[in-house]
């Protein structure tokens, strides 16, 4: 498979702050690639380097077969970008911004523009200064999907969107993928990446710590279960796939690998379930579990 994005040993510092510390990232043509990491892990810095907005200190970066710094403008005709924090010209209307960005990118699909405005329920006659954060985000999303491009760089694109719009956004990503576009989707929400991505790269402290298909990363997606049972919850900790079982006040909490969820729940059921909650791990828990330190250490890194 031909790669649309290839990053090897990428480094970038801002003064004393190390934002990227030897990052590797490969995104194949036509795939939706989840780019996961806590705040400040270096996701936005990576995307800005991919756009040629920032210059790499060292390492190799190829985007669509070109050098993103030297060939920025040419490459951008084939790339659309949704920033995490959309800033628009306050005295232009949303419709004007969509047109402007589309034209500067080299043209936009008229029927798609109209359809997207409809789907995202966006009033194009409103001045950008009157838009809420979510509506500014929608302007950027509409502008990005209205041009037919080969690569979409989406930096936490759903921040500020309500659940309905988030759903609409997910449909847009699926459609773009069906048309053959490649998508790099950065997020700090594991569930979002799970719902959309073919492959996932997890970045922390400016370095990729895991990369692979979701099946390959299944070991990361343990479920956290909390239950209250009629009989005392003994022996659960010894079940296969159950980790970190702890009992207090007759309640048991444990993490279980997804493959062994069935067995664990069956065991609970035999004890008589009074109450049961289960939730997928948050990224924070994941890091705590797998890398033994809190993600807050590097929270300031690369927040630019």
């Amino acid at each position: 498979m031909e790669n649309v994005i290839e990053i090897r040993d990428l480094r970038k510092t801002f003064g004393p702050t190390v934002a990227l510390d030897g990052l590797d990232l490969t995104v194949g043509r036509g795939e939706v690639h989840g780019f996961l990491g806590p705040n400040g892990a270096g996701k936005s810095t990576t995307i800005r380097i991919l756009l040629g907005l920032l210059r790499r200190d060292s390492g190799e970066v190829r985007v669509l077969g070109g050098d993103p710094w030297a060939e920025a403008a040419d490459l951008h005709r084939r790339i659309a970008y949704v920033p995490g924090d959309v800033s628009l010209w306050p005295n232009l209307t949303g419709g004007e911004v969509v047109d402007l960005l589309g034209r500067m990118r080299g043209g936009l699909d008229e029927s798609r523009r109209a359809e997207l405005l409809e789907r995202f329920d966006l009033d194009p006659t409103k001045k950008a200064r009157t838009y809420s954060k979510g509506n500014r985000q929608k302007v950027a999303v509409v502008a990005a999907f209205a041009s037919r491009v080969d690569l979409l760089l989406l930096d936490e694109p759903t921040s500020g969107l309500d659940p309905l719009m988030e759903e609409e956004f997910r449909r847009c990503v699926h459609e773009a993928r069906a048309e053959g576009a490649t998508v790099l989707l950065s997020s700090h929400i594991l569930a979002e990446a799970e719902a959309l991505s073919d492959r996932v790269t997890i970045i922390k402290g400016g370095r990729a710590v895991e990369s692979g298909t979701l099946a390959e990363l299944r070991h990361l997606t343990r479920t956290t279960v909390t239950a209250e049972t009629v009989s005392p919850p003994a022996g659960l900790a010894d079940l296969p796939g159950v980790h970190e079982a702890r009992v207090s006040d007759g309640r048991i909490a444990f993490d279980v690998d997804s493959d062994h969820l069935d067995g664990a729940v069956a065991a609970l059921s035999r004890l008589g379930i009074r109450s049961l909650t289960a939730h997928p791990p948050t990224l924070e828990e994941l890091f705590l579990r797998h890398y033994g330190e809190t993600t807050r250490d590097k929270a300031e890194v690369g927040s630019r």
Partner: peptide, 17 residues
């Protein structure tokens, strides 16, 4: 500073232009 140059430079506009 406001992040709006980024919108423009992420399109096919070269910096010099």
């Amino acid at each position: 500073e406001a992040g709006r140059s980024e919108n423009v430079l992420a399109t096919g506009t070269p910096r010099v232009r």
